Amino acid sequence: MSTLLSDLGTDLPLVAAPMAGGPSTPALVTAAARAGGLGFLAGGYKTAQALAGQIHTARAEGIAFGVNLFVPNPAPVSDAAYRRYARALRPEADRYGLTLPGEPVEDDDHWADKIDLLTSAPVPWVSFTFGIPDRAVVRALRTAGSTVLQCVTSAGEARLAAESGVHALIVQAQDAGGHSATLTPARPPRPLQLTDLIAAVRRSADLPLIATGGITTSTDVATALAAGAEAAMVGTALLRTHESGASAPHKAALADPAFPATTVTRAFTGRPARALRNRFTDHYDPIAPAGYPALHHLTGPLRKAATAAGDTDLIHLWAGTGHRHAKAEPAADTYARLAAQL
Rank of each mutant, 00 (worst) to 15 (best):
L141I: 09
G165W: 05
L169M: 12
V138S: 00
D134P: 13
T147M: 13
A136H: 13
H167K: 01
A144E: 08
Q150E: 12
A155Q: 07
S127H: 07
L183H: 05
P133C: 13
L149M: 12
E157V: 06
S127F: 04
S127C: 13
R135W: 12
C151A: 14
S146K: 02
T184C: 05
E163S: 04
G156L: 02
V171F: 12
S120L: 13
H167E: 10
L183Y: 08
S146Y: 02
T143W: 12
T153V: 13
T182W: 11
V126W: 03
V123W: 01
G145P: 07
L169D: 04
G145D: 07
G131I: 06
A144T: 03
S164Q: 09
E157L: 05
L149W: 01
A176F: 02
G165Q: 01
V138R: 01
L183Q: 00
T153Y: 07
C151Q: 14
S120V: 10
V148Y: 03
S180M: 14
L149A: 09
S164C: 06
A158R: 03
T153F: 04
A155N: 08
H167F: 12
V171I: 14
V137T: 14
T147G: 10
A173P: 07
A155G: 15
V166R: 01
L183E: 10
I132Q: 11
